[in-house]
Amino acid sequence: MSSNQSYYVPESSIWPIVGSIGMFLTFFGLSTLLVNQSNGDPTTTAWVVFTIGALVLIYMITGWLRDVIRESRAGLYDAQMDRSFRQGMSWFIFSEVAFFAALFGSLFYIRFFAVPWLGGEGAKGTANMLWEGFQAQWPLLSNPDNSQFAGPDSVIGPWGLPLLNTLILVTSSITLTLSHKALKYDKRKQTIYWLAATVALGAIFLFFQIEEYIEAYSHLNLTLDSGIYGSIFFLMTGFHGLHVLLGGIILFVVLMRLIKGHFSAHDHFGYEAGAWYWHFVDVVWIMLFVFVYVI
């Protein structure tokens, strides 16, 4: 419940409308780009529109955050505003959880229903008549119709790069927590060093992830169009990778702000929001490691 006497309501802001124009250009451009590419039409204009849109979006995000940071530094926010931000970030992460839950749900449906049924299991095993002799297995190396979807030669084993990446991300969560502890005791140097280590570990994770993709495409024939295993593998690890990238950018901005002298032991919501996000991304990876790579 409210306890304060004056709640800060910004009078007006250009950023929402700038952001909406940016979104329109980005996604109209991207849609045109994809459609034209599929139809073999020229894509130059679409690229231009898409790029302009993306630049407008970047301009909006930096401008909007700059305003928020200035207001925060000017002391316009009170404890109630802080709680609103915390609510906002928590529910945003909840929506991300829901998104990944949909992807995990799809993975389980494919593994435990769709593929076994195609292989003739259960009362609905008549599906096997579509592709007689199709053998259900997981990971699926031989697809029902291999002429349309050529299956992968093999998949990425869990105990090489993925295990290393798991250790890297778990370590990065630990370094982040050490950094947070240091911030709470106002030890700025340690805060900055541990946070820099976290960002570096995130970058190394992404580097190895890209290595893994190159390996999959160039040696294993494991691609987006190699049937359902490749589809769900790249969808899930790809979206996770994008989230690592976003989380890394957030933490990098937080790092720059720390170096500039922002945040104090008792007032550092921006830092905490980034940390929450990073831990969330870490937990998703552990789930991915178990359910996509190991099992």
Partner: peptide, 9 residues
């Protein structure tokens, strides 16, 4: 991708 295409599983 083959999410909704049985030919790819």
């Amino acid at each position: 991708t083959a999410f909704f295409d049985a030919a790819g599983g």
